[in-house]
């Protein structure tokens, strides 16, 4: 293994460790029974098949949002629009589920396609604004999130709300739209297969096609891309469309895989989680799986902890923020890197 790879792993590891230590410190400080709290947080998710099932179930949408965000980050686009896309595509999928009844496999496919299509359009717009007028993709995507949430909540409340249940939930979806459960004793659904397949396809796209090559090279060094004759606008648009399709797919898969009605009363947060996953994974599709599993694990741990103890699950967000801060710190542990690089250069000569 070469120096940079080793360094990146060490850095990620140190950042995660620091954040976990801070998490432990918070628990020690805030909890009345720190030891059992720690147990629930760290150990308990792996003690039952059902909990491990929860981890995988949660990892499915996280893989989609992590993939979408890593494509965007990789192109140098700080677009957090996956969040709004997740929400609205989920709603669209549930509408397909409510309004249609198709023979088994076509129904979920239609729902996912519609979700993807929506994501593509939204991200294409944001990408277009960026490429054409250099409009801040960060602020616009965040505004879009709120806008789509508002529109979605309106559609839900006025057209698809089931008056017979308490809470703002949609009508029940037709069963034909649901994704099948694939592992008994858990709620893991075929979405997992779709997610893994998407990871593989994105990997192929980014690393085995000329368009993916253009995306990666432009992201690494825009001037190099320019000098080799790449069209930056085209690259931004392609990356945006792809990310939108994946985010939209994620929202649809989550709704038809895990729910019987549309139940999100706020933005689900799954899209935002993509930012952390992309950073942990260093934008590499393969790593997205592990990063998503890691995040899902500590999320489930935090949920169990919150249920069993006095510490709320939101602690995880604190840890997430700390990981991002350290991983993106270019100078963080740089001394270590320079030393090893120097050694490497010397060994080479």
């Amino acid at each position: 293994m070469n120096v940079e790879k080793r360094f990146e792993i060490v850095r990620t590891f140190v950042a995660v460790t620091i954040s976990l230590l801070i998490g432990f410190a918070i628990i020690l400080f805030a909890s009345d029974e720190p030891l059992s709290t720690l147990y629930y947080f760290i150990i308990s998710p792996s003690t039952k098949m059902r909990y491990l099932g929860n981890v995988v179930e949660l990892a499915i949408p996280l893989i989609f949002s992590g993939l979408a965000t890593s494509i965007l980050f990789q192109t140098g686009l700080f677009n957090l629009g996956s969040e709004g896309v997740f929400y609205f595509s989920g709603l669209l999928a549930s509408i397909i589920g409510i309004k249609f009844s198709l023979s088994f496999i076509f129904h979920p496919i239609l729902a996912i396609l519609i979700g993807s299509l929506f994501g593509m359009i939204v991200m294409l717009l944001i990408g277009f604004f960026k490429a054409k007028w250099n409009a801040s993709e960060l602020v616009i995507s965040l505004m879009f999130n709120s806008i789509f949430f508002g529109i979605g909540a309106y559609i839900l409340n006025f057209y698809f709300r089931d008056p017979n249940v308490s809470g703002v939930y949609s009508f029940k979806m037709n069963e034909s739209v649901f994704l099948n459960k694939i592992i008994p004793g858990t709620r893991i659904h075929t979405g997992l297969i779709i997610a893994l397949l998407t990871v593989f396809l994105v990997y192929l796209f980014l690393y085995r096609t000329r368009w993916g090559y253009e995306i990666r090279m432009t992201g690494l060094n825009k001037r190099f891309g320019k000098y080799t004759g790449m069209n930056t606008t085209k690259v931004i648009l392609i990356a945006s469309i792809l990310a939108g399709a994946i985010a939209g797919m994620g929202g649809a898969v989550e709704i038809i895989g895990m729910y019987d009605r549309f139940k999100w009363s706020a933005l689900p947060g799954l899209g935002f989680d993509g930012a952390l996953i992309a950073m942990l994974a260093k934008n590499k599709p393969k790593n997205v799986i592990f990063a998503a599993l890691f995040l899902a694990y500590i999320r489930i741990g935090a949920d169990l902890m919150a249920r069993m103890t006095d510490i709320p699950s939101e602690m995880v967000y604190i840890l997430q923020a700390i990981i991002i801060l350290f991983i993106s710190g270019k100078k963080f542990l740089e001394g270590y890197k320079e030393k090893s690089l120097l050694k490497e250069v010397k060994n080479n000569e």
């Binding site: 940079e4 090559y213 090279m217 060094n221 190099f224 080799t228």
Partner: peptide
């Protein structure tokens, strides 16, 4: 360094730029 290569990319990836 700024125009000729993407320094964080592999040798192989830099060689096929054109």
């Amino acid at each position: 360094m700024t125009d000729g290569v993407a320094k964080e990319a592999f040798i192989m990836e830099n060689l096929i730029g054109n």
